[in-house]
């Protein structure tokens, strides 16, 4: 047989495969594909594979070889389609593997110590005006303090519309802090600086508002109680995920830089996932509960419940046991 005849004969099969690829690619058309067509697709794909494999032997024209590469690539990505989302495995990952990974990660410890340590220190210094005069003012700036006091000058009851807008602003602000800590993580130092800076700023505003002589303070504390636990933890966690990436990128250990980075990305994933979930929960609370005029007891209860939930998740679920290792990839 001649090359030209061979091409003419094969071309029909290729074009049929091409048509089938098109049908498989579209979700609407894929539903109408019959079993025999699917089988035909597989047969045509194998034939095209054979043609490609034999193209050197047959000395097919280069343009046809190019065409075959594309056709086979196209059919390959239809034959081996991306899978579905295995919910049960993700649940296992989120409830068993992730808390253990977070509990064991030194980056999480560093981020928590930096963030909450500076937060507490700064809050204390801003609160104790007698011992550290002018600390809060010099950290936050007079202007910002006044804006903040102004926005909490009204009580929570009856001013829902005012506070829901404020909520939206704070959600956006705090999520973007977390995100930039994470995003700067591969560079390590900028992420730590951002985290420390925001820890100090948030701490100073908490400490200042907690002073007995600040009138808006009660409203402020009532506002932040319910969602604060989740939100601050989420910021620290997202910074920890970023730091984990950075550590993998710069401290490679025994592996090469790429492999080390890949491994650290796998370790950072559970931390970031939990941070995102916490941001989401915090935002829900901040949207529904915090600006409302619900009694303070309920808000305090939510704060206690969320803190216990986090304790349960990180410590009880996260406490190392025999089967701590494992990634989602091994699971799936």
């Amino acid at each position: 047989m001649r090359v030209g005849d061979l091409l003419d004969r094969r071309r029909q099969g290729w074009q049929e495969l091409d048509k089938l690829c098109e049908r498989f690619a579209s979700p609407a058309k894929r539903r109408n594909v019959t079993a025999s067509e699917a089988a035909r697709f597989a047969a045509l794909y194998r034939a095209a594979c054979t043609d490609l494999a034999m193209s050197e032997e047959f000395k097919l024209p280069p343009a046809t070889v190019d065409y075959l590469h594309r056709l086979v690539g196209r059919a390959h990505s239809q034959l081996y389609r991306s899978g579905s989302f295995p919910v049960d495995r993700w649940w296992h990952y989120l409830m068993v593997i992730a808390p253990r990974a977070i509990f064991n990660d030194p980056c999480v410890k560093v981020a928590f110590i930096v963030f909450f340590g500076l937060f507490a220190l700064s809050a204390l210094m801003a609160w104790a005006e007698g011992t550290f005069p002018g600390f809060a003012e010099s950290v936050m700036g007079k202007e910002q303090m006044e804006t903040m006091e102004e926005s909490f000058s009204k009580g929570l009851s009856g001013n829902f519309d005012h506070f829901i807008v404020a909520s939206a602003g704070y959600i956006q602000h705090n999520t973007s802090i977390g995100l930039s800590c994470f995003a700067l993580g591969p560079l390590l130092l900028p992420s730590l600086v951002t985290l420390a800076y925001n820890g100090i700023m948030l701490g100073a505003s908490f400490g200042y508002m907690a002073r007995p002589e600040v009138d808006a303070g009660d409203t402020f504390l009532e506002f932040v109680t319910a969602h604060g636990v989740f939100e601050l933890t989420a910021i620290a966690l997202s910074a920890a995920a970023g730091l984990r990436l950075g550590v993998g990128l710069w401290m490679t250990g025994d592996t090469n830089r790429l492999d080390s980075f890949l491994q650290s990305a796998k370790k950072a994933l559970p931390i970031m996932m939990v941070a995102v979930v916490l941001f989401f929960l915090a935002a829900l609370i901040e949207g529904f509960v915090s600006p409302s005029s619900l009694p303070y007891a309920i808000k305090a209860f939510i704060a206690i419940a969320s803190a216990s939930l986090l304790m349960f998740y990180f410590v009880i679920l996260g406490y190392p046991s025999d089967s701590t290792s494992g990634t989602l990839e091994e699971q799936t």
Binding site: S82, L179, P186, L245, A265, L269, M273, E329
Partner: peptide, 18 residues
């Protein structure tokens, strides 16, 4: 896989930095 899609999309914010 869904796992890979998660990683590459969660890391997008790091890619958009600075």
């Amino acid at each position: 896989s869904a796992y890979q899609a998660t990683i590459r999309n969660f890391l997008r914010s790091a890619d958009l930095a600075p």
